[in-house]
Design a binder for these strands. Structure first.
Lengths: 350, 350
DNA sequence: ATGAAAGCGCTAACAA
DNA sequence: TTGTTAGCGCTTTCAT
């Protein structure tokens, strides 16, 4: 019964009593068709439930209007927000976003890049600076335009659109230093974010070293945490006395807000008063970070603007040949209530 | 310089000294080609950076291997988790997911559906039960397979794969009733989720009515909240005395966890002790809901399983003609620490 | 303003 | 096992 083939330009043309070329024109360049003819065609199309075959169009125009992105996961709100913004901006320009995940890094990014290339994406967006040599090589050879997101580095030979993680690390460290902090413990997220995490970490340590001189003992860092493990880590560390836990640190610098929030909740549960007993800073500025107790001082990553900017840049390159270039986005430290001055003689460097 | 055309089967064929058909075979049915020939072809392909043109393939096979989904936004973690799982499951089956958002409902869903149809998705996933008649009509006429997610309703003539929101409403109400609650205030999220919200609401009220009889005064409901406004609402309501706020309710039933968490944080800030002074329940079971103070009693929505199940169902239909059917997923109430027995004579129905 | 016809790059009969 | 060839459904010159 229903195995009749779908209507194509041909059927529409014959029903409308015109040629296929005319049908194509009312689809793509309506102003080159007389209004009456156009109307006839539209009616016929409507009547036949005509949906132009996009593969045929793409084949003919060599334009798929698909952009690909590979992220570790969408379960991290910061990626979700970014992709949301990216999709919106691309949609405005009539491009579609094909999302691919590495399942939190368990599937090789190179595989996902190849798959996206194979389905014909016209450009590729990859978060972060460090990617397999294989990927870099593949991108170069396949000549698919691409941009690295969430990072900015003008020194690198790839287009990067994002924020300067290293400088943000310095900025946060400077802020902490200005409040008298010297011994800072870094809590860092999953290893997928490694390069951005590392850059932030380096920024923090460089700033501390510069400020306190070469004798300064570098801060400790705990890696690979998620909300759960951050929460549990804090709870366990607080088994003894608050002051001596955390390697004697007076501030916890969390490289993502979900970590910071886990930390805040654990502190509260354990009766540690933030920021009196311990200062906490985050990265991301999630919506909820404004409402924690205390509200979280954090770095506002401009992911929405980043999505917009990348869409702009990629589309402009695709359509007008504008070269892909790097672009730096500002990221602000949002000062709220989770950081206070160090109270000397209570906690602090042992 | 670099404006040389990309290599196609033809170039690969001639470089490998075979016919285009053979090249196509090593791509699609390698076992029908002698190993040596295959190797030759692969080498040639590699050398020419050959990426098969997916539009041409799709045109020839009439198979785009693209599945579309329209959601209001990705900024809601519950959608992000769902899409993450869906993408993973589809990728395992070699399908790609094209994500489209209505920008929180500001763009008509029908438009997005049309766009996805126009780019040739082979199936469509739409969260929720209620969609414009226009969409329903379009889906029927265009014969694109589809499934409604996040809902289950065997009575409806569309395939639905999800949980039974009405029953979940009843389940939660029953739980609250079993703890002595009678006056319950509903806090409900943005209007995009309307149909699921409504069903839950109806489930709750039906259960209450059934339990307390016809004289029972239906619970109040506050609609259109997000984390911010939920937080602010609670803060304002608590301007006076805790007991008399919230229309005298003893329990706050939040139709999403982000709301519940906002509520919890606001309560805490205002010194209201949950669950002693007020019970709170949520919907979603976000990761963080386990770590709030107190931990949140909430309904665990099986979005990951839902993604998997939908991928299975859609692909099976596409590849083996299995009819699209509805499927009910279990959703559990996760009992934690945010609900307690009502203390009569303190708060409660005036 | 409209039509005829040549592809776009691949797949899949069919033939050998 | 391999090659020849005819489309897939659209766009786009080039005529008219």
């Amino acid at each position: 019964m229903s195995k009749h083939k779908r209507a194509g330009v041909r059927q529409v043309a014959s029903l409308a009593g015109v040629s296929v070329a005319t049908v194509s024109r009312v689809l793509n360049t309506p102003d080159k068709v007389s209004p009456e003819t156009a109307e006839k065609v539209r009616l016929a199309a409507e009547q036949l439930n005509f949906i132009p075959n996009s593969s045929a169009r793409a084949l003919s125009t060599s334009h798929t209007r698909a952009i690909g992105i590979v992220v570790p996961t969408l379960e991290n709100l910061i990626y979700a927000k970014f992709i949301d913004a990216l999709e919106s901006s691309l949609a405005e320009r009539n491009y579609n976003l094909v999302v691919s995940t590495t399942r939190k890094g368990t599937i090789p990014e190179s595989l996902k890049v190849r798959e996206l290339a194979n389905i014909g994406v016209e450009a590729l967006i990859l978060p972060g600076l460090s990617h397999d040599a294989e990927i870099l090589d593949y991108l170069r050879r396949s000549e698919i335009p691409y941009v690295f997101s969430s990072v900015y580095d003008e020194a690198v030979e790839h287009p990067t659109i994002g924020y300067d993680n290293y400088l943000l690390g310095r900025k946060v460290a400077r802020y902490l230093i200005s409040h008298g902090h010297r011994n800072i413990l870094l809590l860092s997220g999953s290893l997928e974010d490694n390069d951005r995490t590392m850059l932030r970490f380096k920024g923090v340590t460089d700033e501390l070293k510069q400020h306190f001189g070469p004798g300064y003992q570098l801060p400790s860092q705990i890696l690979g945490l998620n909300t759960r493990s951050a929460y549990e880590y804090v709870c366990e560390s607080l088994g003894g006395k608050a002051g001596k836990a955390f390697f004697g640190a007076t501030a916890l610098l969390c490289l993502s807000d979900v970590l910071a929030i886990g930390v805040l909740l654990a502190m509260e549960k354990k009766g540690v008063v933030v920021p009196r007993d311990m200062s906490v800073v985050g990265f991301d500025n999630l919506e909820i970070s404004e409402y924690t107790n205390p509200s979280l001082t954090t770095v506002d990553l401009p992911v929405t603007e980043m999505g917009r900017k990348i869409a702009e840049s990629v589309v402009s390159h695709l359509e007008h040949g504008t070269p892909m270039t790097s672009f730096l986005l500002d990221a602000e430290l949002v000062i709220r209530d989770s950081v206070a001055d160090v109270r000397y003689g209570c906690a602090g460097s042992s």
